[in-house]
């Protein structure tokens, strides 16, 4: 079972790097969005450094949406699920591993970009480091909640828009907690509370995600 899990993660990571719509697309989208912010708001350093943290979270959420459509769709179209379902892993675990490899391939890279982007926008160093930690937790929640949306929209043609509508409301809590965390750091308050909420939401997604995805996939695949 462990061997099968690693085989699946290796395969999905390899696929996300080689086929289109992988991390490059999301990272490119993320960087372009961030580059447009100073262009649209003007180069005033004081304004930018104040709103950098909040905007980073918004862009992170939107970039995480991009690669969702491909999470299950390709394997569904190529009938790869026929093989996956006859292996030793239950459908819930397959879905979880796919989400985690998606996170490793895209979310983690986006998180690593986050402090860089924040510094470019003029945020102080301490804030950027906190941004890295919170972006890790946030992108994990985005990947898992997004996986639920992706599995629900599976099989409907052009499910991308439907998926965005399903998923975005559930992206709100991490955005609130993440931006709140940034604000706490900026105003010198304790960041612990926001950090705890952010972790709690990631754990909530980790617990609910596999069960929900398993049920949705089972109905989409029958």
């Amino acid at each position: 079972m462990i061997r099968a899990s690693f085989a699946l993660i290796r395969r999905d990571l390899g696929l996300s790097l080689t086929r289109g719509g992988g991390p490059l697309l999301s990272v490119g989208f993320y960087l372009t969005l961030m580059a447009m912010i100073p262009l649209s708001l003007g180069p005033d350093q004081a304004v930018l450094s104040r709103i950098a943290a909040g905007l980073t979270w918004l862009c992170l959420a939107l970039s995480s949406l991009l690669s969702l459509e491909r999470l299950f769709e390709r394997d569904y179209e190529d009938a790869v699920f026929d093989t996956l379902r006859l292996g030793p892993l239950p459908l819930e675990l397959i879905a979880l591993l796919k989400c985690l490899s998606q996170w490793l391939g895209t979310g983690v890279i986006l998180s690593l970009m986050t402090p860089v982007v924040m510094i470019i926008l003029g945020a102080p160093m301490s804030l950027a480091l906190m941004g890295l930690v919170s972006a890790f937790l946030g992108s994990l929640s985005f990947a898992l909640i997004g996986g639920i949306g992706a599995s629900l929209a599976l099989g409907s043609r052009k499910g991308g828009v439907l998926m965005a509508l399903l998923v975005l409301p559930f992206y709100v809590p991490p955005v609130i907690f993440g931006a709140g965390l940034m604000q706490a750091v900026q105003t010198g308050a304790s960041p612990l509370q926001a950090l705890a909420f952010l972790s709690a939401y990631a754990l909530f997604a980790l617990a609910l995600g596999p069960v929900a995805m398993g049920a949705a996939l089972r109905s989409a695949l029958s």
Partner: peptide, 28 residues
């Protein structure tokens, strides 16, 4: 159980060697 559908369950962008290795590892 082995199931061979009339749709071969292969990912188009992976090589034959990669698919063989994956099937061996995944199915044990």
């Amino acid at each position: 159980i082995h199931f061979l559908g009339h749709h071969d369950a292969l990912s188009p962008s992976r090589t034959v060697a990669q698919e063989l290795k994956f099937h061996a590892d995944y199915l044990g």
